[in-house]
Amino acid sequence: MTAVPADLLIDQPTVADGAALWRLAKDSKTLDLNSSYSYLLWCRDFAGTSAVARDADGGPVGFVTGYVRPDRPGTLLVWQVAVDSAYRGHGIAARLLDALTARLAAERGVTRVETTITPGNTASERLFTSFAERHDAALTRETLFDTGLFPDGTHDPEVLYLIGPLSPTTRH
């Protein structure tokens, strides 16, 4: 395991980060892997609602992708979270999520977070449960998409985690 640099930088992704984000997602072995093209588009079109953690050389070692829901402008939907295996266990995913929500609370008035998690993904369950606790926010869960809705028939259900409202300290 690599030691986390004290000066780990968290900022917005750029198109040049797209390939690295795709590799991080692929190497996670838990995320639904989208096409490499989609990560390039994400870094172009949704950079403002996403975050990347960079090592001392500027290379991405983790990311959170998300978007503000068009019909609920105070809600951030977190799409994917991934951290390089060499950097896991140091709270980087939590730091990314906290930094992103603080930025979006200040810039866009975000007060709620949503994400979906497949049953048994304990790392994500812990990440978002602890996020709700850190931010003194209510957490509810409900099935968003049952297995039968997926055309390939092999996808686990997606459970929607609804977190909020975030405490005022998150929003300022």
Rank of each mutant, 00 (worst) to 15 (best):
L33W: 12
E142L: 04
A82Q: 09
N121H: 05
A123F: 07
L40N: 05
V81L: 08
E107A: 11
A25G: 04
P73H: 12
L96C: 15
R72T: 15
T2G: 02
T169W: 01
P70F: 06
A132F: 08
K26V: 05
L9P: 05
E114V: 03
T111Q: 10
G91Y: 01
T30W: 15
A47T: 02
L31K: 11
R103Y: 03
D27W: 06
G59N: 13
F131G: 02
P5E: 06
L97Q: 10
K29Q: 15
R126L: 14
E125S: 11
S167F: 06
L8A: 06
P168C: 07
D27V: 00
T143K: 02
L166R: 04
N34G: 10
D32Y: 14
R54W: 08
G89L: 02
A106D: 13
R72Q: 15
L33E: 15
T169A: 09
A94D: 15
G120C: 12
G66K: 13
E142H: 07
L97R: 13
A6V: 14
E125Y: 07
H172P: 01
D11Q: 11
H172G: 12
H155Y: 04
G153W: 01
L139D: 09
G62V: 06
M1S: 09
V61H: 08
D7P: 11
A106S: 09
A105E: 05
T116W: 03
T30D: 15
T111R: 13
T154C: 01
A86H: 14
D17Q: 07
R108H: 14
N34Y: 15
Y87E: 08
A106V: 14
T49V: 05
F145K: 00
L8R: 05
T49A: 07
E133F: 03
Y161M: 00
I163N: 08
T129S: 10
T65D: 15
P157Y: 05
C43K: 01
L127Q: 07
D146P: 04
K29R: 15
D11F: 03
R88N: 11
